[in-house]
Nucleic acid binder design. Structure first.
Length: 297
DNA sequence: AATGGAAGCAACCGCGTCGAA
DNA sequence: TTTCGACGCGGTTGCTTCCAT
């Protein structure tokens, strides 16, 4: 007996959402608030799976979502957090309240992974360039030789209409106290960071290698400025447990309890770095400069 | 101008986790 | 304590657009 489907597959519509469907969904959420996704299709008449409704809201219709190009600071945060957390996109997204996990994941897979690959190739001796083992994030990738990065591909025309729908909700979000969407305000950075402090668990050596290899890449000096670094590295196996960050984020009333756990080193260095726009932006700009070196190509 | 490949991104699928009964 | 439903996450797929030939 397999797992039952999340919803009745018969008559369920798939594929891209239409503006009409978006309006129906947004109207419903305006009235009832997000959550209880199971009831959304039946109550709205949408021929969509509840999962699909949630995804559509979370990734596109939710107010406060920032679309378009990522800033150097955002890139730097993603690079650092990916090195620290691995492919925990939801956890990474919790530090970038205006970005969705899906968006970050896509951006990583399409842009940053390639950037970092080239950056690391440039940092290595020529004989090592192209050695897949040299990259923690290395994965099978066809067409790796292409240096043509399309950074400004235009989004579809409908994407702009979803933004409009999203914009319509801005006023409602401000006036409606019943929506507890922590990802939509700047405070969530602090709360997520605090949550991260609560979530230090043991992890494997791979994670540590990832961290160390990243540190080797560029900003050792920056990291060494932090007084917390020694503690963090010496522990060797302590890292944020990203799987709980969002839940902790939603329950940050309990943060104080967990902060009292003395066995866990503080992550203030991470927070400090993440909130230090100039440092991360500078790092990404440096990578960009490396990318532009003719010698690489 | 046509076409094939590459790139980007929206959406889906399957599994893990959590909480209520 | 166990079971089950709902939600959330990460990986993957497939469609659309762009670009080179």
């Amino acid at each position: 007996m397999g797992r039952p489907p999340c919803c009745d597959k018969v008559g369920i519509k798939k594929g891209p959402w239409t503006p009409e469907e978006d309006i129906i969904l947004v109207s419903y959420i305006q009235e009832h608030g997000p959550g209880n996704w199971r009831s959304v299709p039946t109550n709205t008449g949408l021929m969509r799976c509840s999962k699909s409704c949630r995804l559509r809201w979370t990734n596109y219709l939710r107010p406060g979502i920032k679309r378009g190009n990522f800033t150097p600071h955002e890139e730097g945060m993603i690079i650092h957090l990916q090195a620290l957390l691995g492919n925990k996109w939801a956890a990474i997204a919790s530090y970038l309240p205006q970005r969705t996990d899906n968006g970050i994941k896509n951006y990583w897979n399409t842009h940053l992974k390639k950037k970092l690959r080239k950056f690391q190739s440039a940092m290595e001796p020529p004989s090592m360039a192209g050695d897949e083992k040299s990259l923690d994030f290395a994965e099978s990738e066809t067409g790796a030789g292409s240096s043509n990065l399309k950074l400004n591909q235009t989004s579809s025309s409908y994407a702009s209409s979803t933004e409009n729908i999203s914009r319509l909700l801005q006023g409602w979000m401000r006036s409606s106290p019943k929506i507890n969407n922590n990802n939509n305000n700047s405070d969530s950075i602090g709360s997520c960071s605090a949550a991260a402090n609560n979530d230090l668990i043991s992890h494997g050596d791979d994670q540590l290698e990832s961290i160390l290899s990243f540190e080797n890449m560029k900003d050792v000096a920056l990291m060494e400025k932090s007084t917390s670094k020694a503690t963090f590295q010496d522990s060797g196996e302590k890292i944020i447990n990203p799987e709980r960050t969002q839940k902790a984020d939603n329950n940050n009333n309990n943060i104080d309890d967990n902060n009292n756990n003395n066995s866990n080193p503080p992550l203030s260095f991470l927070e400090k770095w993440l909130l230090d726009e100039s440092s991360s932006a500078a790092q990404v700009e440096e990578i960009d400069q490396m990318m532009e070196l003719p010698s690489i190509f």
